[in-house]
């Protein structure tokens, strides 16, 4: 475990906690895309199929449980919680996320490291994670007043992706045979999707203004 990987995991964890805290305390999911949250839940469910079969470390198992638990409870909150449900802006969150699932799955069937069930599902989760943020970014662009917590949530997610790239570069130079094109390319695509958001996030931060994305 290197410092980039740890920092990446911690920003990822922080992003999820920020979101859960927002939903739990103010009982509102305004500005949050249910589509993205559902995709993340599917990402974790298909990636962590090995959670009970392969033990890597206590840290690894705990983090997997946290990500599974938090992603499904966020979806539960938005869909089922009496108050949170009311704050969900269904009419703005219109991205057809089903259209992302099939292409990702077909791509995972075609391009993978090994043609086994677990491996294809793992690859599928990587492809899906790369594009899962799209409904959230579209929703952000439509939202007139992006609240601070939502902005910080997306910022932390983007930071997590950036740190993972640094982690891969570090591991490439320090570990023998560390070459993984599938996670690298999908991870790079994912990080690039945040580039535009980051630009406006830093601009608003620099000018001490509220974050607003151009339509």
């Amino acid at each position: 475990m290197n410092i980039f990987r740890l920092a990446g995991d911690m920003t990822h964890l922080a992003s999820v906690l920020v979101l859960l805290l927002k939903i739990h305390t103010i009982k509102s999911c305004a500005g949050i895309s249910l589509k993205t949250q559902e995709l993340f839940a599917i990402v974790f469910a298909s990636r962590y199929l090995d959670i009970f079969t392969d033990f890597i470390s206590l840290y690894n198992t705990l983090m997997k449980l946290i990500f599974l638990g938090s992603s499904f409870s966020i979806v539960w909150y938005i869909r089922r919680h009496k108050l949170v449900r009311r704050s969900y802006d269904k009419d703005q969150d219109t991205f057809r996320h089903y259209f992302l699932l099939l292409p990702c799955f077909i791509l995972a069937l075609l391009i993978n490291e090994k043609f086994t069930f677990k491996e294809v599902m793992w690859t599928f989760s990587l492809y899906l994670e790369a594009v899962a943020i799209l409904p959230q970014l579209v929703l952000l662009q439509r939202t007139k007043n992006i609240d601070n917590l939502t902005g910080q949530y997306v910022f932390l997610l983007g930071a997590y992706r950036g740190l993972y790239i640094l982690n891969w570069i570090y591991r490439y130079f320090t570990e023998p045979h560390y070459v993984h094109w599938i996670p690298w390319i999908s991870g790079l695509v994912q990080t690039l999707l945040y580039a535009d958001f980051f630009y406006y996030y830093f601009e608003s931060w620099k000018n001490n203004k509220k974050l607003q994305l151009p339509a």
Partner: peptide
């Protein structure tokens, strides 16, 4: 195995 070192990532 060359695949498994990646599986320690989350």
């Amino acid at each position: 195995c060359f695949q498994d070192d990646q599986k320690d990532e989350l």
